[in-house]
């Protein structure tokens, strides 16, 4: 790679980038501080050594491992279901002619503009009637498939050349077979976009778990962290250790698949 010439822009961009990074650096640093360092005045700005007491407390005395598992289950089921149901629906809307398809698609897209506050009370009542309140099911059912997932798959499939599927169709392949063995292997960008958006939405959600869950053993990480902070107001190192555990999967996912994350999020903007 050719070396780039030094630019004066570094004097603007480096401090700016640092400003955005600093709170997260502090999150990591304070999670390995001792309570003594935090609780004196003025509090220390840098730890003297790495103290894992916060992590030990959070993993041993609190329900964080359980909450992590709950969040993981909800996100994993939601991502899988959105990929399966979204691609099935998106494919049908893109390729199959059937009575009512345009009206149903239009209705589904229209629901994207409904704010969540408008539906949350009846959704709570529906989940209560189904006996799902205070179970992970209450968190999973509403996020099984979103109109955005169906729409993103449909847009992608419409852009694929039809000829790819025609040979298989003439050979007598069914639609499901064509979708699985011809279309989906080409749909990696759409699959990763839907996976990223669904994961971010379910992992980071607080509002709905707050409404639907009461028992602490059924909390998700976001709800658990929030409650934990309220109950351990003086154990900041432990709270920050819990916070790191809550944020880490998203941060790691983002750093490992940065291109997919950025493309997914930018695409909601440019096509929206």
């Amino acid at each position: 790679m050719k070396r780039l010439p030094f630019s004066a822009w570094h004097f603007v961009l480096a401090p700016l980038a640092l400003l955005f990074a600093l709170p997260l650096v502090w999150l990591l640093v304070s999670s390995v501080m001792s309570n003594a360092e935090i609780n004196r005045f003025p509090p220390a700005l840098w730890p003297h050594g790495i103290n894992l007491g916060g992590y030990r407390y959070v993993l041993g005395n609190a329900l964080f491992p359980r909450w992590f598992l709950n969040s993981f289950i909800v996100s994993a089921v939601a991502v899988t279901a959105n990929l399966v149901l979204g691609s099935l629906g998106g494919y049908a809307f893109a390729r199959i002619r059937f009575a009512g398809s345009k009206i149903v698609l239009g209705l589904m897209l229209a629901t994207m503009v409904i704010p969540f506050q408008l539906t949350m009370i009846p959704t709570f009542l529906v989940m209560k009637h189904l006996g799902l309140i205070d179970t992970l099911g209450a968190l999973i059912v509403p996020s099984l498939v979103t109109p955005l997932s169906v729409f993103l798959f449909r847009q992608f499939f419409v852009s694929l050349p039809r000829e790819l599927e025609e040979a298989a169709w003439i050979d007598g392949c069914g639609r499901l077979r064509i979708l699985i063995s011809i279309v989906l292997p080409l749909a990696r960008p759409a699959l990763s976009t839907v996976a990223v958006l669904t994961f971010l939405a379910t992992w980071n959600d607080l509002t709905w778990p707050l409404i639907a869950i009461n028992s602490d053993s059924t909390y998700t990480l976001q709800l658990g962290l929030t409650t934990f902070q309220g109950q351990h107001h003086t154990q900041w190192a432990a709270v920050m250790a819990g916070n790191v555990i809550t944020v880490l999967p998203v941060l790691l996912g983002f750093l490992l698949a940065q291109k997919a994350f950025i493309r997914s999020l930018a695409s909601t903007g440019l096509k929206g």
């Binding site: 955005f20 980071n204 976001q222 929030t226 809550t246 998203v250």
Partner: peptide, 8 residues
């Protein structure tokens, strides 16, 4: 990166 951090 702060954008992917949850509001909680």
């Amino acid at each position: 990166v702060p954008f992917v951090v949850s509001a909680a």
